[in-house]
């Protein structure tokens, strides 16, 4: 396939079957390989759509400064797009994110402002909102509330999956900004009556939930629970176990959040088998495992890996 430039190659990722992890010929799992995007994650779609949308609306012009709270992948995607278009990018990122993410952001030309580990991405959002108020000329794309984030998936991820898997019965993805689930979920619901849209939400160590009070909690503005069928919380042990199974059984080397998604997908598969129903379950592989090697996720015993992840924002 030939493209005019790197950003033109975003999307159209492969959907591959999991012959060994699928429980039966009637209940099959399919992985959407988003690590095949230019910067290696599903976030390239949202980043490109948010930038293009801001350009269309005239709020981004050459030389502009873009600001974004991000735990990593969205920042990396934005950095790639911004650099090519001549925008300065400032990312606000929690300090408890992997060293690879920092190096990649810097490599693609982004500046990083760190927010405190306690409170995780909530703190990054709060810091970014303060900075945006102090610098009215900076453009905060704000992935948590930007409809272009969900729209990217409504226009690309959803149609791609349906074209490759017309018999789809379940779609499973991670819940962060909720953009992937809202956009893809809405598209699939419109075209596949009765489809199940399943969210897998990473459950971190206690440090990440270290808010001072409940009112500092955060629900992304994009989130519409009516799009979802069910939502599961997946802890680091299950996420790590499934991440390792995915590479051992199917050869797919994915990041840890994908393990959490696979865990929820396998639960749906087991349920279909129990109920004697046919199922074609598509799930998102958010990114490859490269950025998480330093977390220890792939080395030693599961217990050691889980201990190493404590306090880390691993998804």
């Amino acid at each position: 396939m030939r493209f005019d430039s790197l950003v033109d190659s975003v999307g159209r990722t492969p959907l591959v079957g999991l012959p060994r992890l699928s429980p039966s010929p009637d209940v099959r799992l399919w992985a959407k390989l988003e690590q095949n995007n230019p910067t290696g994650s599903v976030k390239d779609r949202a980043a490109l759509w948010m930038i293009q949308d801001a350009e269309k609306r005239g709020i981004l012009s050459p030389g502009a400064t873009v600001l974004e709270p991000t735990s990593g992948n969205t920042g990396i995607s934005l950095a790639m797009v911004c650099r090519q278009r001549g925008y300065r990018l400032i990312c606000v990122m929690p300090e408890n994110t992997s060293v690879e993410r920092r190096q990649l952001l810097t490599m693609w030309g982004a500046e990083i402002i760190f927010s405190p580990a306690a409170g995780g991405s909530n703190e990054a959002v709060a810091v970014a909102k303060r900075l945006a108020a102090e610098h009215p000329d900076w453009v905060m794309l704000y992935q948590y509330g930007n409809q272009a984030n969900a729209q990217a998936h409504y226009e690309t991820t959803g149609p791609e999956i349906l074209a490759d898997l017309p018999g789809i019965t379940h779609f499973v993805a991670g819940l962060g900004t909720t953009g992937t689930l809202m956009g893809t979920g809405r598209y699939l619901r419109e075209h596949v009556p009765g489809i199940s849209i399943i969210a897998a939400e990473p459950r971190y160590g206690e440090l990440v939930y270290g808010l001072r009070n409940i009112d500092e909690g955060f629900v992304p503005e994009l989130y519409d629970p009516s799009v979802l069928t069910a939502r599961y919380s997946v802890g680091p042990k299950d996420a790590l176990r499934r991440t390792r199974e995915l590479v051992a059984e199917e050869g797919i080397f994915a990041g840890i959040s994908t393990g959490a998604i696979l865990h929820a997908a396998l639960a749906q598969a087991e349920r279909a088998v129990r109920e004697g129903k046919r199922a074609d379950i598509a799930f998102i592989v958010c990114d490859g495992g490269w950025k998480y090697l330093s977390t220890g996720a792939y080395a030693g015993t599961l217990e050691e890996a889980e201990a190493a992840l404590e306090g880390q924002l691993w998804a």
Partner: peptide, 10 residues
């Protein structure tokens, strides 16, 4: 039963 405050991802 697990109770958690809602936090941001992404």
């Amino acid at each position: 039963v697990t109770i958690l405050p809602a936090v941001a991802g992404g």
